[in-house]
C-alpha cells in the first residue's frame, strides 16, 4: 500500500491517460463509425440509397478489419500510424489505433440498430416527399436513438478494455500502470486498485448510457 501511495502521481496520470485515449477514440471513432454505419444501412439492397458497389466494398472492409484482435491490429497498422501521426508507440499511437478499431465496431452496431427501425416509418417519410438523406438523419436515426445510445455504451466498455490491453505496448494509461507498477513488481495491491478503478469507469459509463437510453426510449 505504501508503495502504491508513493506512485500516486503516476497513478493519477495513468487515469487521465486512459480518459484521454478512451475519450478521443469513442468520440472520433464514434463519429467515423456512425458515418460508416449509415453508409452500410443506406446502401444495402432495397434501402434508401441502395448502391451495390458501395455496400459490398464497405461491408468487406468492415468484415476484414473488425475480427482482428486489438493487440494484433495495433501491430498490423504500424505503417499506417507512422504515415498518419509519425510514431508507432505511446499514447497517441494507441489512441489512433483505438479510434480505428472503435469506428469499425461502431459501424456494425449502428447498421444493426438502424435495420431494426420499422420500414413503415421510412415509408411514411417517403410518402411525405422527404429526401433520402433527410429521412436517414431526421427519421431513421432519431427512431433508433435509444438502441444507438446502448450500442455506444457497449463500444465504450470495449474501448476501455482495448485501451488497457494497449498497456502491453507502452500505450500509457491504467493498463500500463498495472503492468509496470503492479504485476512486474509483484505488487498485487497496485493491480487490484487499478482493476477497481477500471471497473468504476466501466460502471459509470454503463450507468450513464442506460440512463440516457431510458430517456430516449421514454421508459
Amino acid at each position: 500500500m505504501d508503495e502504491f501511495l508513493t506512485n500516486l502521481p503516476e497513478f493519477r496520470a495513468a487515469i487521465w491517460q486512459t480518459f484521454y485515449m478512451v475519450g478521443i477514440s469513442v468520440v472520433l471513432g464514434g463519429l467515423l463509425g456512425l458515418a460508416l454505419g449509415l453508409v452500410l444501412y443506406a446502401t444495402r439492397p432495397g434501402s434508401l440509397m441502395s448502391n451495390r458497389a458501395v455496400f459490398v466494398g464497405v461491408n468487406i472492409l468492415v468484415n476484414v478489419v473488425r475480427p482482428i484482435p486489438f493487440v494484433i491490429f495495433l501491430m498490423a497498422i504500424q505503417p499506417l500510424m507512422k504515415a498518419m501521426i509519425g510514431t508507432t508507440i505511446g499514447t497517441d499511437a494507441v489512441t489512433f489505433a483505438l479510434t480505428l478499431a472503435a469506428a469499425f465496431a461502431v459501424s456494425r452496431v449502428i447498421e444493426q440498430t438502424l435495420i431494426a427501425v420499422d420500414p413503415g416509418v421510412v415509408e411514411a417519410a417517403r410518402a411525405a416527399g422527404a429526401r433520402p438523406l433527410s429521412i436517414l438523419l431526421t427519421v431513421v436515426v432519431p427512431e433508433a436513438l435509444g438502441p444507438v445510445i446502448l450500442g455506444y455504451t457497449f463500444i465504450f466498455v470495449a474501448v476501455v478494455d482495448m485501451s488497457a490491453q494497449a498497456g502491453l505496448f507502452g500505450g500509457g494509461g491504467l493498463g500500463s500502470f498495472a503492468i509496470t507498477h503492479g504485476s512486474q513488481r509483484y505488487n498485487w495491491v497496485v493491480v487490484y486498485i487499478t482493476v477497481a478503478v477500471i471497473i468504476l469507469i466501466v460502471q459509470a459509463g454503463q450507468f450513464a448510457g442506460n440512463a440516457l437510453a431510458r430517456r430516449a426510449l421514454r421508459r
Partner: peptide, 17 residues
Amino acid sequence: VRQDIGMIFQQFNLFRS
C-alpha cells in the same frame, strides 16, 4: 408530387421519436 398526396397506413407508421 408526393407533397400533394397524403397517405395513411394500417400500422399508422407514426414517428415514435
